[in-house]
Amino acid sequence: MRCTNDDEMEPLSLEASSRQVSRDTVTVEIVYSVVTGAIIAALLFFVIASPAFIWDLSSGFHSVVMGLAATFSAAGFVYQVISVLVQLKRATK
């Protein structure tokens, strides 16, 4: 049987709990940034590509509109993820 002193274990337990809370916070922020980034990307794609879906465009113009929609939606996703993670880094300092 191993004898331990509960008073000696308490600071370690609080420190471990604090680290777990910190990891949970980072995980939640990462998921938040990815989900909101995906929503922003979908909205940007829909807004930019909607003329190609609504009107009968020539194939060349249709390709340009779809390319722009894909580019802007990807850029919106990356911007959202990076901005949320930078805000998290600033908040943890």
Rank of each mutant, 00 (worst) to 15 (best):
V26S: 09
I39L: 15
S13T: 08
G67W: 10
S63C: 05
G60Y: 09
V64F: 15
T27E: 12
V31D: 03
A38N: 08
G37A: 01
K89S: 08
N5E: 08
F53I: 04
V81M: 07
S13C: 03
M9P: 00
L12K: 12
S17T: 07
S18Q: 13
V21P: 00
F46N: 05
P51A: 05
L43W: 04
V47C: 10
I39M: 14
V78S: 14
R2D: 08
I30K: 13
I39E: 05
I30L: 14
F45E: 01
A91N: 15
Y32T: 14
V47D: 03
S50D: 07
F61W: 09
V64G: 03
R23L: 13
M66T: 06
Q80V: 13
S13M: 08
Y32D: 13
H62M: 07
L43M: 11
K93P: 00
F77A: 01
L57F: 11
S13P: 00
V86P: 00
Q20G: 02
I30G: 02
G60H: 07
L44M: 08
L57M: 13
R19P: 00
I54N: 05
Q87V: 06
L12S: 09
M1V: 11
R90Y: 07
N5A: 06
V47Q: 04
V34F: 13
M66G: 03
G76Y: 01
S73P: 04
L44W: 01
E8V: 11
Q80E: 08
E8P: 00
G76C: 04
L14C: 06
A16D: 02
T92W: 08
I30P: 00
A75S: 11
L88Q: 12
L43Y: 05
H62R: 15
L68S: 04
V65G: 02
Q87A: 15
G37Y: 01
P51M: 03
A69V: 01
F77Q: 01
A75V: 09
Q80M: 13
C3G: 03
I40Y: 04
L85T: 06
G60L: 10
H62D: 13
S13Q: 09
K89A: 12
A38H: 09
Y79T: 13
L68C: 09
M66A: 07
S18K: 15
L88K: 14
S33Y: 04
M9R: 15
C3Y: 12
E8W: 13
V28R: 15
W55P: 00
Y79H: 12
L14S: 07
V81G: 02
V21W: 11
T71H: 12
G37C: 01
A38F: 14
F53V: 05
M9F: 06
S59M: 06
V81F: 09
T92V: 10
A38K: 11
P11E: 06
Q20R: 14
R23V: 09
Y32R: 15
S22I: 05
T92Y: 05
F46P: 00
T36P: 00
V34G: 00
M9W: 09
P51L: 03
A49N: 06
P51V: 04
W55G: 01
H62P: 00
V84N: 10
S13E: 10
V47A: 15
A69S: 05
A74I: 02
T71Q: 10
K89L: 08
M66W: 03
G67S: 12
E15M: 14
L14H: 13
S58L: 03
